[in-house]
Design a protein around this nucleic acid. Structure first.
Length: 422
RNA sequence: GGAGAGGUGGCAGAGCCUGGCUGAAUGCGCCGCACUCGAAAUGCGGUUUACUCCUAGAGUAACGGGGGUUCGAAUCCCUCCCUCUCCGCCA
């Protein structure tokens, strides 16, 4: 949620930002509504002040045993007027808030302007493209041959997009999750969280999935719960409606969760294997930080996510999203993309975003500054650290050998108890 | 699923029966000052948030959400949501 004050003081900035995100919003309409709202509030305040004064007078008269019927009679009329104005004012405020809920966050000034993914900027590349003296297979072929997963049976059980990992595939999945959690906890001081996988409506609103993207989520009708599309939802809501102490910041959380996405509208895209799924596993990093630190924290967050890929020795690149490709809630975002030699393409395995105070406003997540004891919204950030399916794709395809054996990178040897999968 | 209790400030917890001087006692925490070489302890003072207005300053709102009764609601009534306890069922 953006601050309504900004609409008043700097409407052009808002307009430019929303435009850069490729959306259209009727800003004048909101400004007009806000003006109307404030006029009503001023009027209301005056009437209420009068009511309070007269009320006190009535109380005084009654205590003194005097007759207060004249004042009471006059108040009856005023009270009705107040009530009707309150109703009207409430409606206007609701209308404003409803509109505000659908307005995206603005891109940070450093974000390159652009329309879509083709305007994204490659910031850096790490490692070397693996070379093969044979034609590398894709993960589907490799995994099927080694019986690491079974998509047909997964589809039989739950439908397409629900992977069934088997044997060493299941173990590798578990090991990767453990490895990533351990790295973030031990090296960067993240607090490990195991969150609920279903959340209430309010929680999904904080992070921006609701109300705009309801159709992307799985929902249970009877209990009105939403299956989380990312651990970002429950973890960011840990501090909803709280006032943190500045000395508590920054707070770093890392959480594993299964992620559930309906992927409505993306049928036919990346349908093969593990590239796009309805259910997948992800380790998510979430930060609550002071506003003045958030852009520095975004850089370190990205580096922390990258460290996983580096330790696994995978070739990747960091892409800075252009304004038009940014998600609804993000002000700035880096994607990490792994090179998959079998697929012959870059696969997004992480998005590291700074939401500034956008989510904090929605979730009312604040902190008290030490210097002046004032409260202010925190900045929230999160990044995948990282998602497993595409990581597994790149891992299998990168470390394959001609006979189909997978030579595991050294950091996984102890976790797996073996050095290769064959 | 059955029965009951409860939702008040950063936290704990009064107030609700008996509506008005209660934005809310008290304690803890926090901030400042004093004492001290320093700290602890102690003492004194301060400490909700949001909004509106032409600033100073003033005003308004908020005691889970919404509605009602009333001149006036944290307090009375209705309704929804949430939390907890006991029983049942289940991992």
């Amino acid at each position: 949620m953006l601050s309504i004050t900004k609409f008043r003081t700097d409407p052009d900035l808002i307009a430019a930002g929303i435009l850069a995100k490729g959306e259209t919003v009727n800003i004048d309409e909101i400004i007009k509504l806000d003006e109307k709202y404030r006029n009503q509030v001023t009027e209301l305040n005056a009437m209420r002040a009068e009511r309070n004064q007269t009320s006190e007078q009535i109380a005084r008269q009654k205590r003194a045993g005097e007759d207060a019927s004249v004042a009471i009679k006059a108040m009856r009329e005023l009270s009705d007027k107040i009530k009707s104005t309150e109703l009207e004012t409430g409606d206007i405020l609701t209308e404003i808030n409803n509109k505000m809920e659908y307005i995206p966050n603005l891109p940070h000034k450093s974000v390159p302007r652009g329309q879509d993914a083709t305007d994204n900027v490659i910031v850096r590349e790490w490692g070397q493209e693996p070379e093969f003296d044979f034609k590398p297979l894709n993960h589907l072929q490799l995994g099927t041959d080694l019986e690491l997963f079974d998509f047909n049976r997964g589809a039989k059980i739950s439908g397409s997009g629900f992977p069934l990992y088997t044997g060493l595939g299941a173990k590798l999945e578990r090991v990767l999750i453990n490895f990533m959690l351990d790295q973030h906890v031990e090296n960067y001081g993240f607090l490990e969280i195991f969150p609920p996988f279903m959340t209430r409506r309010d929680s999904s609103r904080t992070t921006g999935q609701l109300p705009k993207f309801a159709e992307d989520m799985y929902h249970t009708d009877v209990d009105d719960l939403f299956l989380i599309p990312t651990a970002e939802v429950p973890v960011t809501n840990i501090h909803r409606d709280e006032i943190l102490s500045e000395t508590d910041l920054p707070k770093y959380y890392v959480a594993y969760s299964a992620c559930f996405r309906r992927e409505a509208g993306s049928y036919g895209k990346d349908t093969r294997g593990l590239l796009r799924l309805h259910q997948f596993n992800k380790v998510e990093l979430v930060k609550f930080v002071r506003p003045e630190d958030s852009y520095q924290e975004l850089e370190s967050l990205t580096a922390q996510a990258e460290s996983i890929l580096q330790k696994l020795g995978l070739h990747y690149r960091v892409v800075e999203l252009c304004s038009g490709d940014l998600s609804f809630s993000a002000a700035k975002c880096y994607d990490l993309e792994l090179w998959a030699p079998g697929e012959q393409k870059w696969l997004e395995v992480s998005s590291c975003s700074n939401f500034e105070d956008f989510q904090a406003r929605r979730g009312n997540i604040r902190y008290r500054r030490t210097a002046d004891r004032k409260v202010d919204f925190v900045h929230t950030l999160n990044g995948s650290g990282v998602a497993t399916p595409r990581l597994l794709v790149a891992l299998l395809e990168t470390y394959q050998t001609e006979d189909g054996t997978i030579i595991l990178p050294p950091v996984l040897h102890e976790y797996m108890g073996i050095r290769e999968i064959k």
